[in-house]
């Protein structure tokens, strides 16, 4: 059963001579619970693809179906709700809200949804992220690794169908990087979440079920990683 279907996605920036084809006719599918790595050189279109999959950016042409639903057939409001409930985004630079503490940052999508966060779930999440004793700290009071863990917590808390991570370890040291990958791997295993990770780090890619290589906006290689 395919959870994510990407059909002939293209994305162009600019016009005329300045036109850049960030993605050209990209198509693939992901089954539920698969952890996929996207690798490729800088400027190859990895991040653009990730943002399109997360409903952050709209493609110039093509469609994305998530759990059978055409993502870009929705209006802006529904697209926001889609991101809130169906997608968990993790960035290299964390993008935490500086005025909210750890707890509030993690539960923000649920709060935005007008729901009350489940206390037990939150405690469990904080334990899992090893942030239980930092729950009331502000982002400025956390290390890079801790901030990224909060960012992962925020992405996981709504139990979305898909987790999209854009170089989640790009700004971290090796110890913290290993910790983050472990967390993602555990989450993938425990919650059967579909994951798409953009990375430059070969060791991370090798821990994924599948590796897609992108160059110049096109998929140049798509292999299953049996070693994972």
């Amino acid at each position: 059963m395919e959870f994510l279907t990407v059909e002939h996605i293209s994305k162009q920036y600019g016009k005329g001579e300045t036109r850049v084809d960030a993605l050209s006719d990209v198509s693939f599918t992901l089954p539920k619970g698969q952890m996929t790595a996207i690798i490729g050189p800088s400027g190859s279109g990895k991040s653009t693809l990730l943002h399109i999959l997360g409903g952050v950016d709209r493609p110039t042409s093509g469609s994305v179906f998530l759990d059978g639903q055409d993502v870009f057939k929705q209006n802006n409001k529904n697209l926001a709700i889609f991101r809130r409930r169906q997608v968990g985004l993790i960035y290299q630079f964390y993008n935490l809200i500086p005025v909210l503490d750890v707890e509030e940052n993690i539960t923000l999508p649920v709060i935005m949804d007008g729901r009350k966060p489940d206390r037990k779930q939150l405690d469990h999440m904080l334990e899992l992220l090893d942030l239980a004793n930092r729950r009331h700290h502000l982002p400025s009071q956390l290390s890079g690794g801790q901030q990224q863990r909060v960012s992962i917590g925020r992405a996981l808390f709504t139990a979305p169908g898909i987790i999209l991570a854009d170089e989640p370890t790009g700004n971290l040291d090796s110890k913290n990087s290993a910790e983050i990958v472990r967390l993602l791997r555990e989450s993938n295993r425990d919650f059967k979440q579909t994951m798409l990770i953009i990375t430059h780090d070969e060791s991370i890619a090798l821990q994924c079920d599948r590796i897609i290589t992108i160059a110049d906006g096109k998929i140049t290689n798509d292999t299953m990683n049996t070693a994972s």
Binding site: I81, R83, N95, I97, P109, M112
Partner: peptide, 14 residues
């Protein structure tokens, strides 16, 4: 960027 991050996490324009 912060407002954008919130929108990415599902904040509507409203």
């Amino acid at each position: 960027p912060e407002l954008a991050a919130m929108q990415c996490s599902g904040m509507t324009h409203g």
